[in-house]
Design a binder for these strands. Structure first.
Lengths: 239, 239
DNA sequence: TTAGTTTATTAGTGTACACTAACTCCGCTT
DNA sequence: AAGCGGAGTTAGTGTACACTAATAAACTAA
């Protein structure tokens, strides 16, 4: 045995943790995460992804269907959620206790999430009163690995007055994507639904925080999947 | 140019940061840090150190005298102090704000020091009121890279009543080292000077926290270099 | 001074990950 | 059905670091 008995559960590397996280995000709405989407999100070349995908499926963290994409296994999902818990608790801690603002936190948390121990995360969570939502309103997975599923609604169906975060754009059509980007409607933006015309009419919104108004036709609004953002801080969402 | 114009100041890697830190500690009392001492402190094999030493002196962070040892250049010292500042502020923050105790902090800080940004360290320092000493009483380098030199005194010269930390043993003699280790007198232990006999007599001490008494003869006491430990917490040392 | 021991260095490997260049598969058009 | 463009994969490299085995320099003790 000796050298043959390879370490059964080697700790995950930084890279592996990053890959699992983005695969989680990309495949959370059901489907497969594709090589090029992963490559784009991690800012690496597609062949690097192919290589890592091989390693990850060898270690049983993901399931790979060649030329189609990847999905997390139960184990991979567990690890991904552990990272997301770390990230979100860190973001909350940094904003609450150290005066970070929304923009600055992300990058800092991105680096720290790989270095903090689970024990430190738990202490931070205690210091914050076992919070359930991060500063962006996203749910924080529990230490046991459970997460409140955020259900997304098409902008077309969101109630007037709701504050939303645009999460997914349900099309691959380049013309549509380009148009939406021009309008500032890319995943991550916050907006408020200001009005909706009757009889399948367009939806009027205001971007947050700029306040810029936009009007989105029915068909496009159907493609814009949003998450309702709780308004009263981070303690608990708007039921 | 293009590919020839290599990144002038690539960020230091984790490993490099670790090497610089231990080289700083090993050479702080004047001399050279030897390959095997570095290897022992980092728990790597000596050839790994030789390899890294090559890289570090190529990048101008250390000065290498083959078969003798290494010393930090001004730039290397700057980086080492930056790491030590991070480490000590982290240790203080974790103990003060998150209830860590003396033993637990070190490992956590050891990992975090590579991941935190300078900005976060500054915020922590502010939150702690710009502290000058870490929980062990060691001085924290300033952001500008200055550190209060801790001067060491031989146990033989320390005033009765002083609380000391044993820092260096000024001999390589195996018999002496073994004897001192048997007595529990190894670098890092805390002790209080309880009495000293006149006419170059022995020094009586009590170990902290056990309280075990020891008596150390003049010659040995001359070899035990100690740092005076401030007693009132961490704000300011016993002038 | 020589022999033996310790310490340092070189040589050669392995692993994790990135990259570019070249090739292959898939799905869409015509 | 043929073919074409784009996404995916394979092949081959490079860098950072670790390791073991073999060699060389320096110290020490007879």
């Amino acid at each position: 045995m000796s050298a043959l008995t390879r370490d059964a559960n080697p700790p995950l590397t930084r890279s592996v943790e990053d890959y699992l996280k983005v695969i989680y995000h990309l495949s959370s709405q059901g489907g497969f995460a594709t090589t090029s989407d992963i490559a784009a999100m991690l800012e690496v070349a597609p062949p690097s992804v192919s290589g890592m995908v091989k390693r990850l499926s060898d270690t049983g963290l993901i399931e790979h269907v060649p030329y189609r994409g990847v999905q997390l296994t139960a184990q991979g999902r567990r690890e991904a959620l552990r990272m997301i818990r770390r990230h979100r608790i860190l973001e909350l801690f940094l904003t609450q206790q150290l005066g970070y603002d929304w923009d600055g936190v992300h990058a800092e948390a991105e680096r720290l999430e790989h270095a903090v121990s689970d024990g430190l995360i738990d202490r931070m969570a205690s210091a914050l009163g076992q919070p359930q939502y991060d500063p962006h309103g996203d749910p924080i997975p529990t230490a046991a690995g459970e997460i409140e599923e955020t259900e997304l609604v098409p902008l077309a169906d969101a109630p007037v007055g709701a504050k939303l975060e645009l999460r997914q754009v349900g099309t691959q059509d380049a013309a549509r994507l380009r148009y939406l980007a021009e309008q500032g409607l890319t995943p991550g933006v916050l907006l408020v639904v200001s009005a909706r015309q009757p009889f399948n009419g367009p939806t009027a919104i205001a971007l947050v925080p700029s306040g810029d108004p936009r009007t989105v036709g029915r068909d496009l609004a159907q493609l814009l999947w949003c998450r309702e953002v709780p308004v009263e801080g981070h303690g608990r969402p708007a039921a």
